[in-house]
Design a protein around this nucleic acid. Structure first.
Length: 364
DNA sequence: AAAACATACAACCGCACCCGT
DNA sequence: TACGGGTGCGGTTGTATGTTT
């Protein structure tokens, strides 16, 4: 083990030589003994009192991340992993906040686990770890190149795209950013009115919206890009996707060529969700509420277009009429649907995060 | 067997915020 | 109000260990 001794560092340790690098068992023992007997008090004074040639900051870090008795060591459980993913989707890289939802885990541990494990899993699933949306099409070649070993070309590949990126100026669309300010104000209840309010407040927070997933053929989406921006401007996508709602797309599949979905491309509308795969994860009351008030829920321009055109968003007009989806089309695909559902489900459905109120509270 | 490479994780660094003076 | 010390946080680096070639 190489121990570096230097005179550089923080103001708290600039007056004396301090060790850097890995801690020895003897140093650990000294620190534990001191804090057990006296508490840490002012961290800058700990090294001197404990007889350590370390800076206070280093002592604090060692204690918090490694020596604390209430730390939970060992690998992360699946439940913890899901919690991390879910909270990260809402809070972003706020590791300390995320760690608060995992008793015995430190921010550093969560961060390392994210960077070394979860990140790769999400990418392997076609998810952008930063946004939790499906990777944009221009990222897919990279993804495929990196994952060819694990790819089964006979199965569809999915990616999430944000509906707001389905434009020619996709790159200009700002990426998903956690909205802690909105979360802080968000209220969630079972009433329809509250639901509407919540969605308005949490426009981007991937809460209930995240359960509104619709699968479409990526090729067709891209080919129809212009149509999506037309003045007529509405398709099933516009209805199902608010400006920020993620949509699941099968990117490519030899067993499911574009034609296979061609007849269904407009069928993935409000009622045409990928029934087999997604219906189980939806809460009926939420579904109904959103069906009643999609315009309010989806605050995008497109929804307003529906209002302007006097369309009945409950019944669905042309959108609602096209629900002939072959539900068995994705049998045997290699995507981990459960994982994706978990990653996109409202947190209270599977994690120990009681509610977004809790998260909002923690944000403050 | 050894070198090269990959991975996990501990630790460091710089910055921002809080609070007391 | 300005300043400085203490602390917390997120990004980054360094190192031990495992795996592959």
């Amino acid at each position: 083990m190489k121990v570096i001794v230097c005179e550089m560092g923080h103001h708290c340790c600039s007056k004396q030589k301090v060790k850097r690098g890995l801690w020895s068992p003897e140093e650990d023992e000294k620190l534990i003994k001191h804090i057990t007997n006296h508490g840490h008090g002012c961290w800058s004074s700990v090294p001197k009192l404990a007889g350590l040639q370390r800076c206070g900051k280093s002592c604090r870090l060692r204690w918090i991340n490694y020596l604390r008795p209430d730390l939970r060591r060992g690998s992360f459980t699946e439940h913890e992993e899901r919690t991390i993913i879910d909270v990260h989707r809402i809070l972003g890289n706020r590791w300390a906040q995320i760690a608060k939802h995992l008793p015995g885990r430190t921010d550093n541990e969560v961060k390392n686990f994210w960077n070394s494990c979860i990140k790769k899993k999400l990418i392997a699933q076609g998810l952008d770890p930063n946004t939790h949306n499906l990777l944009s099409p221009h990222q897919i070649p990279i993804l495929n190149a990196n994952n060819n070993k694990n790819m089964d070309s006979t199965k569809p590949v999915f990616a999430i795209i944000n509906t707001s990126t389905q434009t020619k100026d996709a790159k200009k669309v700002p990426p998903f950013q956690p909205r802690s300010d909105a979360l802080a104000n968000a209220q969630f209840s079972s009433s329809a009115n509250d639901s509407i309010m919540s969605h308005n407040l949490c426009e981007n927070s991937l809460t209930r919206q995240s359960s509104n997933l619709y699968y479409q053929d990526c090729n067709i989406v891209l080919e129809n890009d212009a149509r999506h921006q037309s003045s007529l401007g509405f398709s099933s996508q516009h209805l199902v996707g608010s400006a920020n709602m993620p949509i699941l797309l099968p990117l490519s599949s030899s067993s499911h060529p574009p034609d296979h979905f061609g007849s269904a491309v407009q069928s993935w509308g409000v009622n045409g969700g990928f029934g087999v795969g997604l219906e189980p994860v939806r809460r009926p009351e939420v579904y109904d509420q959103e069906m009643l008030q999609p315009v309010m829920v989806n605050q995008g321009v497109v929804a307003q277009e529906f209002v302007n055109k006097g369309l009945d968003l409950r019944g669905g007009g042309e959108v609602h009429n096209q629900t002939n989806v072959e539900m068995g089309s994705f049998d045997g695909c290699n995507i981990d649907l459960e994982f994706m559902e978990a990653a996109l489900m409202p947190c209270e459905m599977y994690s120990n995060v009681g509610s977004l109120n809790q998260l909002a509270w923690d944000c403050n």
